[in-house]
């Protein structure tokens, strides 16, 4: 707040050349991926990914099994090391923008037989904010309850998580991300194995988020619903096949490129590079 005053003051003493403000579009983009490559055990799983996400859209990442969808999200969130390339969230590295990013991992990535309630899980989304050595106070519990209410789960707040259905567990995970009130969300297969009621609840939430100007990037499996749910698609199969508005990009031709056998050469190369290790 005080910076403009100082600049004004100095300008009065001695006129200095106007500082060049680089107000370029990429700096504002919620997500900018530049030439990212990821390798597991020397075997590349993502090659040279370049992508710039538009603001305030629902974006689906689509591709066959093993195409690196989850890996891409993990690479963005610094959960797996990148072999090359950089990622900027609202113009800065993820480490400086964590508070603006919400993450919903795959439901199956955790053991649901853990002795905590739905409310406890949602509160985990605020542990950073609460800080070390402090218990979860009333204020934060209320915030967690509100988030549960948004996903229609407030009646289950004190229920132990193993006693929830798969869809309910997914909604608890969603609430844990919502409670952060982030600007950019990553969701890894939120629709996988959920009931119809949950699917509707999640879609409603996605639309609410978009209306309030948030950007949501979703790993999605069900090709049937892409047109209905998402504004943008990212077609991925180890490399980027196509990106852009759903209407333009989600075409039979592009899908064939994503799911078809046209990338056999890339596969072979990948296998070859992996071979010396497996021996």
């Amino acid at each position: 707040m005080s910076t403009p005053l100082v600049v004004d003051h100095e300008a009065m003493l001695e006129p200095v050349p106007q500082p060049v403000v680089r107000q370029t579009a990429p700096a504002k983009s919620p997500l900018l991926i530049e030439d990212v490559t990821v390798a597991y055990h020397h075997r590349p799983v993502l090659w040279n990914i370049d992508y710039q996400a538009p603001c305030g859209k629902l974006i689906a990442i689509i591709g066959p099994n093993g195409s690196g969808k989850t890996t891409l999200i993990k690479a963005i969130l610094d959960l797996v090391p990148r072999a090359a390339g950089q990622v900027l969230i609202f113009g800065e590295p993820y480490g400086q923008q964590r508070h603006r990013v919400g993450y919903v991992p795959q439901r199956t990535s955790v053991d649901w037989d853990f002795p905590v309630s739905a409310l406890d899980v949602v509160a985990m989304g605020m542990y950073r904010k609460i800080g070390w050595l402090r218990p979860v106070s009333r204020k934060y519990r209320d915030a967690a309850k509100q988030a549960l209410d948004r996903v229609g789960m407030v009646d289950f707040a004190s229920r132990q998580i193993s006693q929830l259905s798969g869809g309910q567990q997914q909604r608890v995970f969603l609430a844990r991300a919502l409670v952060q009130n982030a600007d950019l969300y990553f969701m890894d297969e939120p629709f996988a194995g959920v009931d119809a009621a949950t699917e509707r609840a999640i879609v409603d939430i996605l639309r609410q988020l978009r209306e309030s100007g948030k950007t949501v990037i979703v790993v999605h499996h069900d090709l049937q619903t892409v047109h209905e749910y998402f504004d943008e698609v990212v077609l991925l199969n180890m490399r980027l096949i196509a990106t852009g508005p759903t209407a333009d990009v989600f075409t039979p031709d592009n899908l064939r490129k994503t799911y078809g056998g046209k990338l056999a050469l890339l596969d072979q190369l990948g296998e070859k590079m992996a071979q010396p290790r497996s021996r």
Partner: peptide, 15 residues
């Protein structure tokens, strides 16, 4: 408790 329940989420949150 966060570490034991969901290590990856903990890492994503900056722990």
């Amino acid at each position: 408790s966060l570490l034991c329940f969901d290590e990856e989420f903990a890492a994503a949150r900056g722990y």
